[in-house]
């Protein structure tokens, strides 16, 4: 493999494991290691690919993802405000706004759904919240991201849902990614696909489906936490030995061995 191809492969596989809320930091760290211009360019294009593939909140309120990427330019389309924008990767900001009128067909419920998603966010997303609606042929994408960046308390996290609506069919998935790094590096990941039928054709039925799906998933995750704690963690390493007292270290430690050999009938 040639040097630059190897560099590209190595950098993109590093970037792909970045927490969604820490792209700026990851890009800075990587640039300190690669140092030359070609390396920095590769870091930037890997970050761009990451945003396109996974979606991201830009300027705390816009969403960029492959589905609203403008094919003719470097920009992303905001169908709600009818604008196009570029991303300044160093500051994670939307820049170079221009008006944009797409010839794609908007669904009739579009404006109503915008309003519903706004109040849905206010009700259920306590931190930074962004959503976008992307009409694409017969399909409509709804992308929702809730994000918290709390560097002072060493954590960042993102809840991302993506739904595709086609007539009365709705499918998609929810991804949760939390990073906690005080004196360590701990990561939570959860990923689940959903599929269902809408019980109507308007914005109401869409928001009801989203709300009840996301409530169910949140409760399921809480259950899974308890399951992992009880089933996998609790006896992985006991809190105390069966004797319920700490070990008597020293020359008599061999006695435990004798005791355990008797119990296990060795």
């Amino acid at each position: 493999m040639s040097g630059s191809l190897l560099l590209e492969k190595v950098i993109s596989s590093l970037v792909n494991t970045a927490p969604p809320g820490e792209l700026i930091g990851v890009s800075k760290d990587l640039s300190s290691i690669v140092f030359d211009q070609a390396g920095s360019n590769t870091v930037n294009s890997s970050i761009e690919d990451y945003i396109k593939e996974n979606g991201a909140i830009i300027s705390s309120k816009y969403i960029a993802i492959k589905h609203n990427k403008d094919e003719q330019s470097t920009k992303y389309v905001d169908y709600i405000n009818k604008k196009k924008f570029n991303i300044d990767l160093t500051a994670n900001k939307a820049i170079d706004f221009e008006d944009y009128e797409s010839d794609v067909q908007y669904p009739t419920y579009f404006d109503e759904l915008v309003g519903q998603l706004e109040s849905y966010g206010a009700d259920h997303y306590p931190s930074t919240y962004a959503f976008t609606i992307i009409p694409e042929g017969n399909k409509v994408h709804v992308v929702i991201i809730g994000q918290r960046i709390n560097q002072e308390n060493y954590y960042t996290g993102q809840w991302k849902s993506h739904y595709v609506i086609e007539d009365k069919n709705i499918s998609g998935g929810v991804k949760l990614d939390i990073h906690y790094y005080e004196d360590g590096n701990v990561r939570l990941n959860f990923d689940e696909n959903v599929e269902g039928k809408l019980d109507g054709s308007g914005a109401n039925s869409i928001i009801n489906f989203i709300n009840s799906t996301e409530n169910k998933i949140t409760i399921k995750i809480v259950e899974n936490f308890n399951g992992l704690n009880q089933k996998s963690f609790k006896n992985l390493r006991r809190l105390l030995p069966v004797t319920r007292s700490k070990i008597n270290w020293g020359s008599a430690i061999g006695n435990y061995k004798l005791g355990s050999d008797v119990v296990h009938k060795k």
């Binding site: 206010a122 009700d123 259920h124 997303y125 306590p126 931190s127 809730g146 994000q147 918290r148 709390n150 954590y155 996290g157 993102q158 809840w159 949760l176 939390i178 906690y180 360590g184 701990v186 939570l188 996301e214 409530n215 949140t218 409760i219 995750i221 809480v222 936490f225 992992l228 704690n229 963690f233 390493r237 809190l239």
Partner: peptide
């Protein structure tokens, strides 16, 4: 071990419910 219990089960769950998506109406 106590710290792992706290971070893996309490801290992460709290971040999900209090910072990212809450079940009830905020």
């Amino acid at each position: 071990r106590n710290l792992l219990q706290e971070v893996y089960f309490d801290k992460l769950k709290d971040i999900m419910l209090k910072d990212l998506r809450s079940v009830g109406d905020l």
